[in-house]
Amino acid sequence: MCQDCTKGTISRRGLFAGGLALTLAASSGSMAFAQSSEAPPATPDEALKRLIDGNARYVANSPINTDHSVGRSARSTGQQPFAAVVTCSDSRVVPELIFDQGPGDLFVVRVAGNFINEDGLASLEFGAAVLGIKTIVVLGHTSCGAVRATIESIQDKILPPGHLPSLVNAIRPAVYDAMADNPADLLAAATAQNAKLNAEKAAVADPILSDFHASGKIKSSAGIYDIATGKVAFL
């Protein structure tokens, strides 16, 4: 049995050498960008600007990605998203609408509270090493129920029932950080800190994501989506 397997880890070299990345990258197809009239972003900064511009269109109610039948046939051959968005499961938060992007443009990882666990890291590694994403955005949002529940759990010193404690424990560090500053709006401060902490986590996660960040192939950032206005503020 190989040493990497016994350790339960996989190196970047192992990912590609094993053929998985090559096979899946080939299946992405050169026509994967046919769904959009925009050229694929070449750099992380260009990818982030495309998201910022898309959000501006969304706020102005002037979207350009309205015909989802365009490129449907091409998308059946594979995918090649340019950005990953780690976002909350909240039904009011829809990244493709918020950033005015079409099907196939965004690789979305969702969980209540938009934190990154082991499964989330694996998904982002796949997005970076196989799909070629250029940027990762951890997107929190106003009035986040998951963050609010974590605050209440800490203040009441009571864990919620079922599997909810795992969610609370994941968000707890951000709440403690925010509490230390005694903010006027603890929910807003904790939501922002949660997004920032998880963007930092994506940037330093060994071995794949940290390597991509160090080489400048990808960048991570945090943002807050205002449900009332539709605007994303990058932190």
Rank of each mutant, 00 (worst) to 15 (best):
residue 185 D to M: 01
residue 154 I to L: 15
residue 220 S to R: 07
residue 139 L to T: 13
residue 178 A to H: 03
residue 177 D to E: 11
residue 219 K to T: 13
residue 149 A to G: 15
residue 184 A to G: 01
residue 166 S to P: 03
residue 135 T to W: 09
residue 164 L to T: 13
residue 216 G to V: 04
residue 219 K to W: 04
residue 214 A to T: 02
residue 187 L to Q: 09
residue 178 A to C: 04
residue 144 C to H: 14
residue 183 P to S: 00
residue 211 D to I: 04
residue 152 E to S: 11
residue 141 H to V: 12
residue 177 D to A: 11
residue 174 A to R: 10
residue 201 K to N: 08
residue 197 L to K: 13
residue 205 A to N: 05
residue 193 Q to I: 06
residue 214 A to R: 03
residue 136 I to A: 13
residue 182 N to V: 00
residue 196 K to N: 09
residue 192 A to M: 07
residue 192 A to Y: 03
residue 193 Q to A: 10
residue 146 A to P: 14
residue 146 A to K: 15
residue 149 A to H: 11
residue 145 G to Q: 15
residue 142 T to Y: 09
residue 148 R to Y: 08
residue 160 P to N: 08
residue 184 A to V: 00
residue 178 A to F: 04
residue 212 F to N: 03
residue 203 A to D: 04
residue 158 I to V: 07
residue 139 L to K: 11
residue 186 L to I: 03
residue 135 T to H: 14
residue 159 L to M: 08
residue 133 I to Q: 11
residue 162 G to A: 13
residue 181 D to A: 05
residue 138 V to C: 15
residue 133 I to D: 13
residue 189 A to N: 02
residue 210 S to W: 00
residue 163 H to R: 12
residue 140 G to V: 12
residue 192 A to P: 02
residue 181 D to N: 01
residue 170 A to G: 06
residue 159 L to P: 02
residue 144 C to D: 14
residue 164 L to D: 12
residue 143 S to K: 15
residue 173 P to M: 10
residue 136 I to P: 12
residue 164 L to R: 13
residue 134 K to S: 13
residue 208 I to G: 09
residue 143 S to H: 14
residue 166 S to F: 06
residue 159 L to C: 02
residue 215 S to G: 01
residue 190 A to R: 08
residue 180 A to K: 12
residue 205 A to Q: 08
residue 188 A to T: 05
residue 190 A to W: 04
residue 211 D to H: 05
residue 210 S to Q: 03
residue 199 A to D: 12
residue 206 D to V: 02
residue 163 H to S: 14
residue 149 A to V: 08
residue 205 A to Y: 08
residue 196 K to A: 12
residue 217 K to L: 08
residue 185 D to I: 01
residue 213 H to P: 03
residue 216 G to Y: 08
residue 138 V to I: 15
residue 159 L to Q: 08
residue 142 T to V: 13
residue 217 K to E: 10
residue 190 A to K: 09
residue 160 P to S: 09
residue 147 V to D: 15
residue 195 A to Q: 14
